[in-house]
Write a protein that binds this DNA or RNA. Structure first.
Lengths: 168, 168
DNA sequence: TGCAACTTTCAAAATTATTTGAAAGTTCAA
DNA sequence: TTGAACTTTCAAATAATTTTGAAAGTTGCA
């Protein structure tokens, strides 16, 4: 396989993976490109490489910075901005977890709290089932939450090492 | 809050959560409805409750059965099929993990294997960086994979109990 | 200040994903 | 067998998301 072919394949597939993860294709592709690029790239280089418009590049680069997966790099004597991708897989995954938790899990928990604070009376089988489901989800989520917190705060070696030892 | 309002809110929000999880809104809503329904519902009841078409209901019920989140229930002397939702949160989450892993992680790993088996020579900085990234992702994934396997095979109490003790 | 080099914005266009509903397919009791 | 009761399929319609590109905004140097 040619280097260029391998690179394209990697970028394409990372893009597809992004799609099912609720991250849009271009954002995932920009991320893939920067992850495998040893040097910082300018917006123009990214546009050229991925064949996307300036607006599209801009918006997705910005999201990636927001997610903590890409950093700006300024070169002295150059007004262009350059972008460098986070290379440490553990940090990448951790950032994705933090960001998605905030965006997805937290709003659901807020709704559950709102419902359960309003104390729907156990007046029918249906109401009992709803109340129970809500209790179960909250219980489960709070546990998942603690686990994610530890995960996020721990460093890669500690986590994987301890975990793998534990399950042996 | 009225029972009906709480129910709608729950279903709506579970649907929104589904969207960001790469599960379509209707599928997540059907799942929510069945999760909080103490009795099995027919396709017609689901259509009526969620205001969706027969085709849409059918396709999403089938996906849910496929994902192991909903079961068929046949009532003697009735030709209609009824559907009952998995109620155990741990099983729900476990099934989602298994299914998504198969659908998302595995294809990516196949591509990485394909690329790394073709042995791109370390002929340039770029090629070196790509090779390293691929190695890192594979390493990370194989660890994540073991962890997910344990998670999936373990039962809820064991996992959460042991984990929480460990991190104290 | 003025201007060139760059970045950001956003409405319209394009693309992608979902939903509908009617027709085809299946099943089973009589 | 037949036909009523039900389920499945799928092409077209609709809805949601993403992308474009041109115009507006910003920045810093001469």
């Amino acid at each position: 396989m040619e280097w260029q072919e391998a690179k394209d394949k990697f970028i394409q597939n990372w893009g597809a993976l992004g799609t099912v993860w609720g991250i849009n294709r271009t954002m995932a592709q920009v991320h893939a490109l920067l992850m495998i690029s040893p040097k910082a790239l300018s917006a123009d280089e990214i546009m050229e490489e991925l064949q996307i418009s300036r607006g599209n590049a801009n918006i997705n680069i910005r999201s990636l910075i927001d997610w903590g997966l890409v950093y700006k790099e300024l070169k002295p004597g150059d007004r262009k901005e350059y972008f460098i991708g986070e290379k440490d897989m553990w940090v990448v995954v951790r950032q994705i977890i933090v960001h998605r938790k905030k965006r997805e899990l937290d709003p659901m928990l807020r709704v559950l709290d709102e419902i359960s604070n309003s104390k729907i009376p156990d007046a029918s089988d249906e109401a009992i089932a709803l109340n129970k489901t809500i209790r179960d989800i909250k219980l489960f989520s709070s546990k998942a939450d603690s686990i994610l917190d530890v995960l996020v705060k721990s460093d890669s070696n500690w986590f994987v090492g301890t975990f793998l030892k534990m399950i042996k």
